[in-house]
């Protein structure tokens, strides 16, 4: 049973020759099979949490602990975290010129699984996963994220989620920039992975719209670098009606 435990996490970033604290004591536990929505206004630190967990070098952890099944995540390199079962679906995945999607997926799967997938079953596995996400087979021969539309990038991220089968999936604003059709396709992909029951999901979003497709077990409101309020799915309804205003003000006076 995979469990991600975040305790009192503090993270800073260097900007304009100054050190700025973005995360100010985050506490959160995500268990296998659970879906946690993290919602909050722009600049509240939601994405910083996602990238800090994945190990992006831009962020410095100044305090707190993160463990995955008791193992110290913060002591791991980026690739070790991924191989331990952590997956981050990125909001703005970068282009990787000269590397085809098909080569990229196979190299990733080989790294994560510890051995190269058998070619015959792998080709079928990828083709079927792409069909489920309504992706053209020709997509596999394009270079990673090169000239992808916003929707294609998100589908490609979710395709990786389906193929790499992580224990903990962090989805950073996967809904941003998607039209309703694309949002439905992407959400269905996430739900297929969730229904497997093996993954704990951390769904980071600014809007409540995606929560109509992906039902969270828990909703956390993120403000000023920490979780300001936690609740069930009903908390999202409250945010839908009232917005983040009360949290932003609260954050400013804190």
């Amino acid at each position: 049973m995979a469990t991600l435990e975040i305790n009192d996490l503090h993270v800073t970033v260097e900007a304009d020759n100054a050190t700025k604290e973005i995360l100010r004591g985050v506490d959160l536990t995500v268990k296998q099979g659970e879906t946690h929505a993290i919602m909050g206004p722009n600049g509240s630190g939601k994405s910083t949490l996602a990238y800090s967990l994945a190990g992006h070098p831009k962020y410095t952890v100044t305090g707190g602990t993160v463990t995955l099944d008791g193992e110290d995540v913060l002591a791991m390199t980026v690739d070790e975290r991924a191989r331990a079962g952590l997956f981050l679906a990125m909001q703005y995945p970068v282009e990787v010129p000269g590397v085809s999607v098909s080569n990229f997926l196979r190299t990733s799967a080989t790294a994560i699984r510890g051995e190269a997938p058998k070619l015959r079953t792998w080709v079928k596995e990828v083709r079927e996963a792409m069909e489920r996400l309504s992706m053209d087979p020709a997509f596999a021969e394009r270079n990673v994220n090169e000239g992808f539309s916003g929707g294609e990038k998100k589908r490609h991220e979710i395709l990786q989620l389906e193929l790499l089968k992580p224990h903990i999936a962090i989805l950073d604003e996967t809904d941003s920039g998607l039209d309703v059709d694309a949002l439905r396709v992407v959400s269905e992909g996430v739900n297929r992975v969730r229904e497997g029951g093996d993954v704990g999901t951390l769904l980071i979003t600014h809007y409540t719209r995606i929560l109509r497709y992906i039902k969270p077990d828990f909703v956390h409101v993120f403000a000023a670098g920490r979780i300001a309020e936690s609740g069930g799915a009903e908390l999202a309804d409250k945010l839908e009606e009232e917005g983040y205003e009360s949290y932003v003000k609260g954050g400013a006076s804190a």
Binding site: V78, D79, A82, S108, A111
Partner: peptide, 9 residues
Amino acid sequence: FYLQSRGMR
């Protein structure tokens, strides 16, 4: 970072 986050050394 992107490639490492997919498990590659």
